[in-house]
Simulated scan of single mutants.
Amino acid sequence: MIRVLIAEDVRILREALVALLGYEEGIDVVAEVEAGDAIVPAALVHRPDVAVIDIDLPVLDGLAAAADLRVRLPECRVLILTALGRPGNLRRGVEAHVSGFMLKDSRPEDLVNAIRDIAAGGRVIDQKLAYAALALPVNPLTDREADVLRLTGAGAAPREIARDLHLSYGTVRNYLASAVTKLNARTRLDAVRIAAEAGWL
């Protein structure tokens, strides 16, 4: 019996997934959660073989939760099921050691087969997304430029970033200008968007 945890914040989708999998022989949905921070606690209690996780979850995003789950319960394999089909998310998923990455417009039977494959030790990656990820250019940002962009995206002003990273205000401005130039962005926030979508933050 394959034990499955479902993490999806949209109730109608979560209940539809539970119902779909309930019809499948050899699959048992042992837990369902609606927020990212509930994934690991539920998994530690119910010990699923496969966690089917959306990315866009409240409190903690699904990829961050998947990375935490990998540390806390490494025997549980993760299948990301998302509408956020950006190559950068696939890259983040690979870094989090997820076993599968599928889009929500996949056929129900493909999802069921993916759960079975992943439970058996396989990997399942959406082909179109994989090709798009391979076509992405190499990350042009230095680690420090990425740190500064990440904090900018979180709403921090350059002076706050300088204080938090123990840098001078001028150095932070230089990192921001360099990142904007490297990414061919119009503004700092545009640079944050480009880098985030590429999976560089």
Rank of each mutant, 00 (worst) to 15 (best):
P108Q: 10
V10P: 06
V180P: 05
V112C: 10
T142S: 11
A114L: 03
R144V: 08
Y175W: 08
V148C: 05
L13H: 09
A120W: 00
L73T: 10
R150I: 09
V172H: 02
A35P: 06
V112Y: 09
V138T: 12
E15S: 03
R86D: 15
I118C: 03
V59T: 11
L60A: 04
P140Q: 06
R3A: 02
L13E: 09
I118P: 00
L17P: 03
D56Q: 10
K104D: 10
R188A: 08
E197C: 07
Q127W: 12
I55D: 06
R150A: 15
L5C: 04
A130H: 11
R107N: 14
R11F: 08
S168K: 00
A66I: 06
P74F: 07
L176Y: 05
A157R: 13
A132G: 02
V172I: 12
A51S: 03
G153M: 08
A42E: 01
D49R: 02
A43D: 01
Y169C: 04
G100S: 07
A146Q: 09
E34S: 09
A157S: 13
A114E: 04
T181K: 15
L201E: 02
N89W: 13
Y175H: 15
A65G: 06
V138S: 10
S99K: 06
Q127H: 14
D143G: 11
V172A: 05
Q127L: 15
I80L: 14
I80T: 14
N113F: 09
I80A: 15
R186C: 11
L151M: 14
L17Q: 04
D190C: 12
A7L: 02
A135C: 04
E197G: 04
G155R: 04
P41S: 00
V10R: 13
L176C: 05
I2V: 00
Y175N: 08
L5E: 03
L69E: 06
A146I: 03
S178L: 09
A65H: 03
E197F: 07
I118S: 02
V33D: 01
D117I: 09
D117Q: 12
I27Q: 00
A96G: 12
L167P: 02
T82W: 14
A185P: 11
A135L: 05
L167W: 04
G88M: 10
L73Y: 11
